[in-house]
Amino acid sequence: MRKNVLLVLGASSDIGMSVAKKFAQEGFDIQLAGRNSYNLENHCTDLGIRYKVNANFYELDALDFNSHEKFVRSLPILPNVVVSCIGLLGDQSESELKIKKNVTVIRTNFEGVVSLFSIFANYFIDRGNGTLIGISSVAGDRGRASNYIYGSAKAGLNAFLSGLRNRLFSYGVNVLTVKPGYVTTKMTSGLKLPKALTTNPEKVAYCIYKAYKNKKDVLYVLPIWKFIMIFIILIPESIFKKMQL
């Protein structure tokens, strides 16, 4: 039997690497896509040695939309599972000053993923199976002063994934939205994260694999985040706007 294949978009991220490792451990062949080829080629070698799977690197720029169709066609095997770890946190204070940077945050987190997932969705419909996994964020559940640029892009992504799930369900294609909460990664290094609300990339990867196996729709990696976000969503706007969150 041919091995299942996982494609990681934005593979140089810590979550991306951990997901690749977890799936490789479960016997998947791995395709890593992203910028920063030096790192990723070594990662492929590492995955090959560690888990005795085939792992290859493919160059991808999430913001170069015109190249996406070509990128997907260039893959030697259409993957069974695609996970997008494309993400850019940006710096909110900087974002307020530099509108151009805001646009990059939005385009990376939202448009990049939309473009790639839309292409894969069509291929998966043709094949009649497949799973799309989007790493989104709890920040997308409600816009807050501290990071609403990133948050709004993730909110868009949440809506997109939800709609895509709705559309693809009848074709046998699954879509999983992942909201990790705080994770100790390169993206959050330098931030002081509260311990009880923070998890690590390995845990995220483990939960993603489990959710994939169980064909879940939305995954909060730490259940406590689900309650926090429900609470935050329930606060009336007239009060919410006065809070410094």
């Binding site: 909110q92 990071n147 330098g190 931030l191 509260p194 969150l245």
Partner: peptide
């Protein structure tokens, strides 16, 4: 409870 990057020192 939400975070801001500490720009002043990374010690």
């Amino acid at each position: 409870m939400f975070l801001k990057k500490n720009n002043f020192s990374s010690t």
